[in-house]
Amino acid sequence: MLSIDKYAYENRIVNWSPKLKALLWLGGIILAFQPIQWLKLAVLVVVATITIYVTKVSFRRYLSWFYAIIPFVLLSVIGIVVTVSPQRSALIWPIKFVSVYIGMAKVMMPKAGQMALQCMTAIVCTYWFALTTPFIQILQVLKAARFPRVMIEVTMLMYRFIFIFVDAFDQIHRAQKLRFGYDSFGLMIHSSGILAKMLFEQVIINYEMMTKALDAKLYDGEFYI
């Protein structure tokens, strides 16, 4: 589930300063937002290539991280270009609907294309950052950016606990699936409910045990960062 995290610890530039990586990310984002279109495209290709090289990730797996988001980008593009107009000539693929036409607005096409390109370039840059910077280093960036201490402490703990919950989630989900708990829509809703309830119980069980463990470690109210 959290395969990105694993790559973040094993890439070629894991030891670079996280602040430098954050600055490079910012640079990439600025390039994605600047107006020259070919430069965006160049950044997209270059950063994607670099990412695959430094993380040693297979091209197929790299692409797989885009599957989930491309539908949403497309959906937004459709939202931008589809319009209703009385003039047939302003539209691509017009469909007559009563007295007006529904279709894609010609004037919006370049804008939609630019938005899609900008979006993809920015996503590629953020992936580069996420895949080369372990979350522990991101905490250092947050610290350097003077985020409040208590927020960083909670973030740090949350990062650790997420893996405990993911484990529990996987185990419960798998056990349900093997007992046919997800074989229909109704069963899926029901089983998801049980799963959520069981995870919720984990919050309490873990809290109880962790309280004891904190005492054993002489915890005094502060997590050092």
Partner: peptide, 20 residues
Amino acid sequence: PNAKVMLALCGAFVFVLSSL
């Protein structure tokens, strides 16, 4: 007691639930 741990546990729970 240990409110930070409780907050973080709830946060982690919410995060994992979001992958349901």
